[in-house]
């Protein structure tokens, strides 16, 4: 990347976080859709990757995302009890909490979040993104990510 090009990258005040969000198809992805339909504005710091269930998210995906350039990873699913696949989100909760512990040991505390966002919580989706963005900003850039050329 040339210096000239790099200078043109829209950066706000220097650096903006890069968040990857795994959203389950039935609740959180729909919640993100509702945020859109309702025009609830939030910072363009997040990319959404749709999975059918939050329980699909493997720790390896999270680690890969952090290694490859994410400053934060959000996993969002249905509220406990609302899971389209009965209790997939409970499995996700166990798995994500374990991954959080591992990340803490790697010095990546606070960069992984698990949220329950329902299909009717468009506002909450936008708030979660705003809040997580602010939190990551406080933490600063992810120290372990490899910036690819």
């Amino acid at each position: 990347m040339s210096a000239e090009v790099a200078a043109e990258i829209p950066k706000g005040n220097g650096w903006e976080p890069n968040i990857l969000a795994f959203c389950c198809n039935w609740c959180s992805y729909a919640g993100a859709d509702l945020a859109g339909v309702s025009r609830f504005q939030y910072p363009p710091t997040v990319r959404i990757l749709r999975v059918m269930c939050s329980s699909r998210v493997e720790p390896a995906f999270i680690l890969k995302a952090l290694k490859d350039g994410a400053d934060g990873v959000l996993v969002a699913g249905c509220h406990i009890g609302d899971c389209h696949y009965i209790d997939g989100n409970k499995n996700a909760e166990i798995r994500i909490n374990n991954t959080k512990k591992a990340l803490a040991k790697l010095g990546l505390d606070g960069r992984l979040r698990l949220e329950w966002i329902s299909a009717s919580e468009g506002l909450r989706f936008s708030e979660v993104i705003r809040d997580f963005t602010e939190e990551i900003k406080k933490l600063g850039e992810n120290p372990v990510k490899e910036v690819k050329k």
Binding site: L20, R47, K64, A65
Partner: peptide, 15 residues
């Protein structure tokens, strides 16, 4: 997709 996630952000510029 995760791979592409990074590339998409890091290296695009708009003239």
């Amino acid at each position: 997709a995760i791979d592409a996630f990074d590339k998409g952000v890091k290296s695009i510029s708009i003239g």
